[in-house]
């Protein structure tokens, strides 16, 4: 599923758009624990998280994650957006709970990582 369609499906919006609208994602991972995220060892994984602090972006940068969905109506802070811009990471904000987001994406055929 391409990012543009993910945004529509989740009734979400970009807070930082690094030009990935047409990038395709087949695999997603949801966690609020950053060391879990750092176990990801394949490229092109969509991260779904309820953690909205600077470590979310640092972790994405280290794990080569280029697209993050922030669930539960969590808002990206200005410093998160700045670091995301610097590292070309797309951030999408969504009001749905992580369970809801995962359900919708799973339904569209996005696979779990593990």
């Amino acid at each position: 599923m391409i990012v543009k369609d993910i945004v529509t499906l989740l009734d979400a919006h970009y807070v930082n758009n690094s030009g990935l609208e047409n990038e395709n994602y087949d695999v997603a991972f949801a966690s609020d624990l950053m060391s879990d995220v750092l176990t990801i060892d394949i490229p092109n994984v969509l991260l779904i998280t309820g953690l909205a602090n600077i470590q979310t972006i640092r972790t994405a940068d280290m794990a080569e994650i280029k697209c993050i969905v922030l669930g539960r109506n969590k808002k990206a802070t200005p410093e998160m957006i700045e670091l995301a811009q610097e590292n070309e990471i797309t951030i999408i904000e969504c009001a749905y709970s992580l369970f809801h987001i995962c359900g919708l994406l799973y339904n569209e055929g996005i696979d779990p990582l593990y």
């Binding site: 624990l33 950053m34 060391s35 879990d36 750092l38 176990t39 470590q55 972790t59």
Partner: peptide, 10 residues
């Protein structure tokens, strides 16, 4: 966002 106990294994 830390405390999974996964850092050292990672």
């Amino acid at each position: 966002g830390f405390g999974a106990g996964m850092g050292l294994p990672n």
